[in-house]
């Protein structure tokens, strides 16, 4: 299996902008004109990227809504957000379009309970602030599998 490094998000967005309108009219002369420069391959790649991005957005929403994510061993994780303007550091899709991986910056919010029995900690707990929320800049690393019904998350971690 070979893996191709994908275009940067910025170039991807450019391409997306180019193909956004023709999507509904792929048989139109303009789309046909693009066929000569491997536009169908590029279009497929864009579709894959969008599908994976949608998976990541759903995942972030699920985390922030308090849901637990199977396989994501990050105790206290209560929030996950991607900068919509940021470019993925890495976005690869296998040539046969069955596997993909992403590495991108994210901000992860954790709720950490105060540890110990120091007086300050005891008093803080007593007045209701027994934990603190901290936001950390992390790298979101995901791998994905394409099944018959579409892309699925295979594994994710916050590096």
């Amino acid at each position: 299996m070979t893996e191709k490094p994908m275009t940067s998000r910025r170039s991807f967005l450019k391409a997306g902008a180019i193909v956004a309108a023709p999507l509904a009219a792929v048989a139109a002369p303009a789309a046909a004109a693009l066929a000569g420069d491997r536009s169908s391959e590029r279009l497929a790649r864009i579709e894959d990227e969008r599908a994976i991005e949608a998976l990541n957005r759903d995942l972030a929403r699920q985390v922030s809504a308090g849901g637990s994510i199977a396989g994501l061993a990050e105790p206290g994780l209560v929030g996950l957000a991607f900068d919509p303007g940021a470019e993925p550091a890495e976005f690869t899709i296998s040539a046969d379009r069955t596997r993909a991986s992403v590495r991108m910056a994210c901000s992860a919010e954790f709720e950490r309970e105060f540890e110990g029995q120091a007086t300050l900690v005891q008093m803080a707990r007593l007045q209701g602030n027994g934990a603190v929320r901290v936001t950390e800049a992390r790298s979101f690393v995901g791998s994905y599998l394409r099944r018959r019904d579409g892309w699925r998350i295979e594994r994710i971690e916050l590096a």
Partner: peptide, 11 residues
Amino acid sequence: RTGAGDGAAGM
């Protein structure tokens, strides 16, 4: 030290 009773975690 970690866990209850350490008296200094976080301090």
